[in-house]
Design a binder for these strands. Sequence first.
DNA 1: TTTCTTTGCTAACATATGTTAGTATATTAT
DNA 2: ATAATATACTAACATATGTTAGCAAAGAAA
Lengths: 197, 197
Amino acid sequence: MARIKIEKNSSRKEVIVSKAASLFREKGFKAASMRDLAEAVGVEAASLYNHIKSKTELLHELCFGVANRFMQHMDEVESKKTSSIAKVEELVRFHINEMVNHYEEVYVSDREWKHLSDPYLSNFQNQRRMYRKRFAAIIETGIRNKEIKSIDAPTAVLIILHAISGIESWHRSTQKINAEELTNNMITILVGGLKNV
Amino acid sequence: MARIKIEKNSSRKEVIVSKAASLFREKGFKAASMRDLAEAVGVEAASLYNHIKSKTELLHELCFGVANRFMQHMDEVESKKTSSIAKVEELVRFHINEMVNHYEEVYVSDREWKHLSDPYLSNFQNQRRMYRKRFAAIIETGIRNKEIKSIDAPTAVLIILHAISGIESWHRSTQKINAEELTNNMITILVGGLKNV
DNA sequence: TTTCTTTGCTAACATATGTTAGTATATTAT
DNA sequence: ATAATATACTAACATATGTTAGCAAAGAAA
């Protein structure tokens, strides 16, 4: 009888969630079927329901898992006593790092959250809005301090976040430059583009 | 009997394609059903098939319509005898403009092309790859001329294109700054981040 | 071993979905 | 007015999909 293989310190549910991430990334949430997922996991579709409640639950887990990590990091950054530009750089580095190392989950959370349903949907949207507001506030402080060019802070946030999500293309490209070089290039352009000379 | 209303100089098919764009943008290609589309158009689902061949055809029309406009613009830019940085700026302005004024189509083309099927899929992917290569080539020339910072050109392209696709968030935000201001801010950060000082 | 719990399987369901057939009704051309 | 064409409608189909019910087998606990 087939059985879901687990690594040490991981539940069967975690295996399913992880496979779901890569499937949702590849095909999109709607287009990825539970039968696809079952096959990826090596089991029949019905068997998945011994471990999860529903397909949507998989999306919850992924989206809120990612959102929580970012929120927690934001807390940490805000509490530091560094310059605004340093904070921005740290946020950017964290985003890049997450996108490089937890590609599938972050990507899915970013692109597929639309398919959440209330109350999760509203909750997620609020978190997202809050995160961006806090990011923008840091930039605004930087502008007042003359560390950062005088630009519209929400626009800057929007540019930064979306630019980073472009790492998706990097992941799929055949001749990748290495991750460190990628990070440095992104910092140069994004943070460099903000800095007051 | 219900009838699809058309404006002057537009076919019924164009009305359908346009409504499809906004539906695909809102719900995603897979999640948007032909019945949804029919309702948006004001007609029964089966009636749509007097004008279109299939649901996928709608996606073709949208994706290739957008891709062709960008390709043609790239031809124009390349043939100009301006500096590299000016070319980059013109490309960026065009992208922003398209994203602001043809939001739905551009967005759908950007996010939903995965659901094309071969041979269209490969064709689209090739066009996309080509476009980016040509964009990167312009940046590389700029680097050799010392107009542009010494960075990895493909990474720069990736950042620029994805940053612009972030205009999606701007479109949905309640308190939008105006389009011109948005453009200027984006140019400042993106082109400013590239320029050699 | 015996009992209990976990995990898997087959079968089936209800529903949603893209699409086609066949027919009726407008609109346009003769 | 008549014929021809374009457009719409109802009904139905085949298929895909999320999920549940009921049972079997495997592993852990006693």
